[in-house]
Design a protein around this nucleic acid. Structure first.
Lengths: 213, 213
DNA sequence: TAGATTGTTAATCGATTAACAATC
DNA sequence: TAGATTGTTAATCGATTAACAATC
């Protein structure tokens, strides 16, 4: 199966499949058909079968899908068991919340360093990782070679910071700032979470509901 | 202009346009053409003109778009100046970070109440709003009629909570939990932020880059 | 075997892009 | 006026859905 044929929309649905299957598995459900899963997830059965088949034949005609097996397969596809070394920049409320998320479950990453420009934070422990002053980031990266950076600081000097991180070998960013890393660094992978954009979309929709329903 | 003809993909791009225009405005740029904006945003000029025209003719042939005017128009479309009453459930790190976001700028909502099940949080102030125990949520909603609920607690008893909130008149949810409110309550509007899904998508992509680039 | 359900192709639908006439 | 750039329609592209043969 040629990976390049898998569209981004399919990929974005994978974690949701993974969550639903995990839930079914935890509830002791061992078998499910695409049409039952479609009811539970609010998708079409056709789309579910089409999505799964991007990665190979996981089901069995006349039977459906084996839940624990499919769950494991999707976990493998998502590489959730890998531990790519990640660093967190920004140890405020958002940074701490995001650190929790990373530690909460296997997500493909392992947080190995936390940095903040606030001196008062230095030395504090978050999930058994000491917060370091941001000035130590360069040496830390040289010594530990993280490949992913999680950006939890407001805009500020984002250009300087991301330029540095890219020079230091960071290959992917989980970006919570509004700085457009992807435009400045097309060579790296950027997954952005724009909280304000999300809220504003909700504002639009809740003020224009008649048109949407 | 028939609002129902505006696709969700266009709507999701509006906040980003708004941000970029704000930035241009703050930098004293008063005029921009679709092609220059396309360079800055990494979109096609065609798409930009097409998007803007969903809402009416904001530009001028031979000239382009007036930045402050367009910024204001998009702000109006997004209803960022409205103050829909919102309550926050969950005052942990994520809840606090999200509260900051709501207060940071005009986003169409105004936080009027914060709730947490942790007794120790009760009475603490966040942005001059006292944290109340979650048991007070019913009376608070009856007295204050919020229309939006921001969910910043892990799954737990989400069904019970969201059923209650819907009964109490909540019309829209900004949902950070993995509970699928939209499936349980098709009558309300739900904008979800699935942090773990976002991270897992990044995991997939960073492990399968050759196919994506 | 008969019934059920997948895997897969073809049809449809919708979003993006290209093109160019309108017009500032 | 001539040049630039929008507004808008048509063409293209891609994603979703429908249909059904394959097969467990």
């Amino acid at each position: 199966m040629n990976k390049s044929s898998i569209s981004i929309s399919v990929i974005k649905r994978l974690p949701r499949y993974y969550r639903f299957l995990e839930n079914l598995k935890n509830n002791g459900i061992s078998r499910i058909s695409s049409s039952e899963l479609s009811d539970r997830m609010g998708l079409t059965a056709s789309q579910i079968r089409h999505d799964f088949n991007c990665f190979g034949g996981f089901g069995q005609q006349g039977y459906g899908y084996n839940v624990p097996e499919l769950h494991a397969k999707i976990g493998e596809i998502l590489c959730v068991n890998k531990e790519q070394k990640a660093i967190l920049i920004g140890a405020g409320n958002l940074g701490k919340a995001v650190a929790n998320k990373i530690f909460q479950r296997q997500s493909g990453f392992k947080l190995i360093g936390i940095f903040d420009k606030n001196e008062a934070m230095s030395g504090k422990m978050i999930h058994q990782i000491p917060v370091r002053h941001i000035d130590y980031i360069e040496n830390f990266c040289i010594d530990n070679s993280p490949t992913c950076a999680v950006i939890c600081i407001p805009a500020g000097d984002m250009k300087e910071l991301t330029d540095l991180l890219c020079r230091l070998g960071i290959k992917s960013f989980w970006n919570f700032s509004n700085y457009d890393i992807a435009l400045a660094h097309p060579e790296v992978l950027v997954e952005s979470v724009h909280l304000t954009d999300s809220l504003m979309a909700l504002s639009y929709l809740s003020n224009n509901e008649e048109g949407q329903k």
